[in-house]
Design a protein around this nucleic acid. Structure first.
Lengths: 204, 204
DNA sequence: TAGATTGTTAATCGATTAACAATC
DNA sequence: TAGATTGTTAATCGATTAACAATC
């Protein structure tokens, strides 16, 4: 029984990975101090995180960059391909469908879904927009494991329920809605809230 | 000297506010238990948060919904208007420029800025795209206090430096770049990282 | 060896939750 | 009054940081 990795640590792994990939090809090792510097955290944090996920360095030398890259990739499951469906073909949904940053890490957007009949059948980034009624069929056909909700707030819970029932196991929710689901991991990105938090500091 | 509000509490205020606004008009009070339920947190959390920001309820009754709405709005500074500049007119930058969710809370996008000469002068959501060279002039002209970075990663630090020097005090960063700035509050939204974190759970 | 750097422990800090007296 | 619900304290939990012996 392996102890699970703290969520704060998991959330930093993508940052470390990107930093490691940005290091010059000819470098072979990297100290926790240097990685911390470019990742914007403390070196003790880096050592603790890497230690928690079972990654070891060499005392007096540092960490093997290539081993770190490969092992973090594997820990995050980025050596698999994941199929993603996006629900909501508004400005945000379309931008996400065309976003290159997903493909780069092995996430393939297999469908963009919307209720608007005038949108269905048109294409965004070479992807045809499908009807909401086909959600379940599409998830099953492509064996999609991730759903991205970019609908208006009122539609989000229903879409989440349907994604969950169809077998999607992770949801990235851009709707400003608190989703009630079970057995599905949800991450929330609330763009308006982010600005509101910044606003608090501007005046406080 | 007022003690400052814990960051975790500040981050929940926008959620509470949205929940309160979704309550029927004819309701006048709301218990911490009910608010917790719709916000997806524990009732003790709600009471603690509200207490930390100085909001009181009535024992045996609950909290006054209208007072809560007004006071949270004020705490977050949402009774002001904020001018926002967006840098990067790619898919994401354009989607953000057209995003209605910002306007709704008093955030006005005053400029969309890009380096690409073929984009400059065209319009997105009735907003003309400006040249990067004009960033400082635009920030000053509109007295913008928030910058949204939606550039490729390599450009983000330079843009952040220029925003900061031009007087912007808060940055929302969508580039997968760790920004080094001082005296500016930065919030990071890393879309690829979100999927990577979800991927970790899919396989773990 | 001397210098560098890890890996881990313990201390600290901050956030969440449970519990319940206070009181409407 | 009796029932409901707050406001706060204390307990718990999780995350960060400091410090340093181990060791390359």
């Amino acid at each position: 029984m392996k102890a699970s990795i703290p969520t704060a640590t998991v959330a930093r792994l993508p940052v470390y990975l990107r930093c490691l990939l940005s290091l010059p090809q000819d470098r072979s090792t990297c100290s926790s101090e240097e990685l911390a510097q470019i990742a914007g955290v403390q070196s003790a944090q880096v050592r603790k995180d890497l230690s928690l996920v079972g990654l070891r360095g060499i005392r007096g030398v540092g960490y093997d960059i290539d081993a770190l890259r490969r092992q973090i990739t594997s820990l995050l499951g980025l050596d698999h391909e994941y199929r993603v469906v996006i629900i909501g073909a508004g400005n945000l949904g379309r931008a996400l469908a065309a976003f290159e940053g997903f493909r780069e890490w092995g996430f393939t957007v297999v469908a963009l879904i919307d209720t608007d009949p005038s949108k269905v059948g048109t294409t965004v980034a070479r992807l045809p927009i499908a009807a909401l009624g086909d959600l379940e069929a599409i998830v099953q056909e492509h064996d999609a494991s991730i759903g991205i909700i970019a609908t208006p707030p009122g539609a989000a819970q229903d879409v989440a329920d349907r994604l969950s029932a169809a077998g999607v196991r992770s949801i990235l929710n851009f709707a400003p809605t608190v989703l009630k689901v079970s057995g599905v991991e949800v991450r929330r990105v609330d763009l308006s809230s982010e600005l509101q938090i910044l606003a608090h500091h501007l005046q406080g």
